[in-house]
Nucleic acid binder design. Structure first.
Length: 137
DNA sequence: GCCAACGTTGGC
DNA sequence: GCCAACGTTGGC
């Protein structure tokens, strides 16, 4: 099983929207690196859900419910989507500042490349983030 | 609102 | 194939 993190602007599509809709089609990705990561996602992989721009925190855990398929918002076969379902809202959101301050979190791509919207997370760092969220999975 | 970082585009 | 210019993202 692999671990991932996706970024979303809550004003466009936030955690509450995911819960309300019960499933999200993760479409509109137009970046090759992010696209490559979408293609590597397997059903059942855990996906951290991060709110960019506003609160800048990881707010919950989601899961891949369907592996990649043609992005329905374009006919260009370069672009793919996956489906995500909510697993659990974090008891305490994990802020970007807290991630930066945690010495155990060193590889997280977001801390170096602020622009990538879909990225892998190392297992030990994933576990650390879950621990920081005070949430039982 | 500004600016840094980075990806993409297009001229050569 | 290189590199400058430009656009976009996202933190501050």
């Amino acid at each position: 099983m692999n671990y991932w993190l996706v970024k979303s602007e809550p004003e466009v599509f936030g955690w509450d929207d995911l819960v309300k809709d019960k499933v999200a089609i993760w479409d509109g990705v137009r970046n090759y690196q992010a696209r490559n990561n979408l293609r590597l996602m397997k059903k059942g992989d855990y996906v951290l859900f991060y709110h960019s721009q506003t609160t800048k925190d990881v707010v919950g855990l989601s899961e891949v419910s369907q592996e990649f398929f043609q992005d329905p918002t374009t006919d260009d076969p370069n672009w793919v989507s996956v489906k995500l379902i909510p697993v659990k809202k974090f008891v305490e959101p994990v802020t970007l500042a807290a991630l930066k301050a945690n010495e155990k979190i060193t590889e997280l791509i977001m801390l170096r490349n602020g622009r990538l919207s879909v990225m892998p997370v190392a297992k030990n760092e994933f576990n650390e983030i879950i621990k920081m969220s005070k949430t039982k999975i």
